[in-house]
Design a protein around this nucleic acid. Sequence first.
DNA 1: ATCAATAAGTGCAACGGGTCAACTTTTGAA
DNA 2: TTCAAAAGTTGACCCGTTGCACTTATTGAT
Lengths: 204, 204
Amino acid sequence: MSETTTGIPAKAPEGRRERKKAATRRALAEAALRLFFERGYEQVGIREIADAADVSTTTLFKHFPVKEALVFDEDAQQEARLLAAVGDRPPGQSIPAALREHALRFRIAAVDSDADFRAFTELVDGTPALRDYAQRMWLRHETALARTIAEESGLPADDPICAALAHFALEAPRAARGCEDPRQAVTRAFDLLEKGWGAVATGG
Amino acid sequence: MSETTTGIPAKAPEGRRERKKAATRRALAEAALRLFFERGYEQVGIREIADAADVSTTTLFKHFPVKEALVFDEDAQQEARLLAAVGDRPPGQSIPAALREHALRFRIAAVDSDADFRAFTELVDGTPALRDYAQRMWLRHETALARTIAEESGLPADDPICAALAHFALEAPRAARGCEDPRQAVTRAFDLLEKGWGAVATGG
DNA sequence: ATCAATAAGTGCAACGGGTCAACTTTTGAA
DNA sequence: TTCAAAAGTTGACCCGTTGCACTTATTGAT
């Protein structure tokens, strides 16, 4: 307890304070997830989660703005990966094709690989409140994506076609919900976007 | 008050019961709308609305499942019109073109005609909760629209491309939100869909 | 070493949307 | 006339969420 020098040169030059805060946060998220898996999202109350993590509900809400957020802890980079999928796509690949690949890779395929992740996915889209929240969060990347699309395609930044493609691409996985074969559904949906984009945009 | 015979041969051969029920419903919706306009959606509580209509909150919720529903009373036919826009489109017109026309007509243009309707629109998309609710309701027509599209195009009913077009078409007005010129944004978005559809589908 | 400032956390009461169960009235019809 | 269903009432209650006043660390500057 006497590290005057920069204690941990790791990624976080944090003090005891920040560490404790992070610990509380993790405790909350873990307790919540455990309880949700055990008994289902709706059957678990906020007060119970706070109890399990041994904090007050007020504290809980200082870490997570709403109940749904407890499920989606730590998913930064999401946007970065999305934008990179478009910006760093292999030469010759169209923008919609890059987006399709990204969608298939991260929103469809991942399901049948990781076992924990499968359970997580089942929890999420078995719970309307969580589905909606996830989609809302996902759509927050729309403007950023639209901007990247504009840059990559050389279209004016305010051309609404960019916003349209961004929106549709982000909605595509949702459009595929309920189909027996989501993989094919996503593929087909992006076919539509790709052909349309090729005809409407100049660069692509 | 002594009409033993079928009093009003109008559209509703309803008894006193149904009439009273409808009256209560109307009273609630009107009170709610009036208060919302006066002070804003979020500043008006459910209990206050119930009071204004002189019923209990329990009764209110027997007529409207959630607070948002108070704003969207009586909008049946919506789906019928939507499906008709596709089914009865002029010969030679593509499905996406028909959908674009419908979108422009009912979700964009109507704003700058009727004065009351403009106020209503402002209320709705000035209130996130109402926007979200409206969109959720609107998306409920997705499967019906997908089916109509399949029939009209001759594609197999379970081809996910139909669901995709339906979903995108219903989302298009939303994709245009925030643009300075919504009309053009919607048009461009449907351009994308039209070209894509033409290339992907056979009938169109 | 000390001290004020800051931020985390607490406890509790409250609010607003929404539900529930039990009970009273109306109303339609047998 | 009688009876069952539907509409409405009442009041308590749950749940997510917020506000407020308060305690307790932790920190940086002195």
